[in-house]
């Protein structure tokens, strides 16, 4: 089915958000998922099925430019 991920149209198999993350080798703990303009709880990834036309945004953790532990 067709969905949109980070602005790009993509053809994906049926399944849950967790399946989608796994298929793309994205660790569920390192991303936040917005589904149709709503941020999902991480615990919901496993029970949320993807539907035709869904608009999904993967929002990644990004740090700064300071060595870890310095601040």
């Amino acid at each position: 089915m067709q969905i949109r991920i980070n602005g790009k149209h993509e053809e994906v198999k049926e399944g849950t958000i967790l399946d989608l993350l796994k298929a793309r080798n994205v660790e569920p703990e390192m991303v936040s998922v917005e589904l149709n303009s709503k941020i999902l709880e991480r615990t919901d990834y496993v029970a949320t099925n993807i539907k035709e036309g869904d608009v999904i945004e993967f929002l990644y953790f990004m740090g700064g430019g300071v060595a870890e532990g310095a601040i």
Partner: peptide, 27 residues
């Protein structure tokens, strides 16, 4: 401008409690 997630969350929560505008950035 931190590269440290514990600090990023601390900064966010403190900004909410202190009611101060916060500009986030990450790379």
């Amino acid at each position: 401008g931190t590269d440290n997630f514990p600090t990023k969350f601390l900064v966010n929560d403190a900004a909410i409690f202190a009611n101060k505008p916060l500009v986030h950035g990450g790379i």
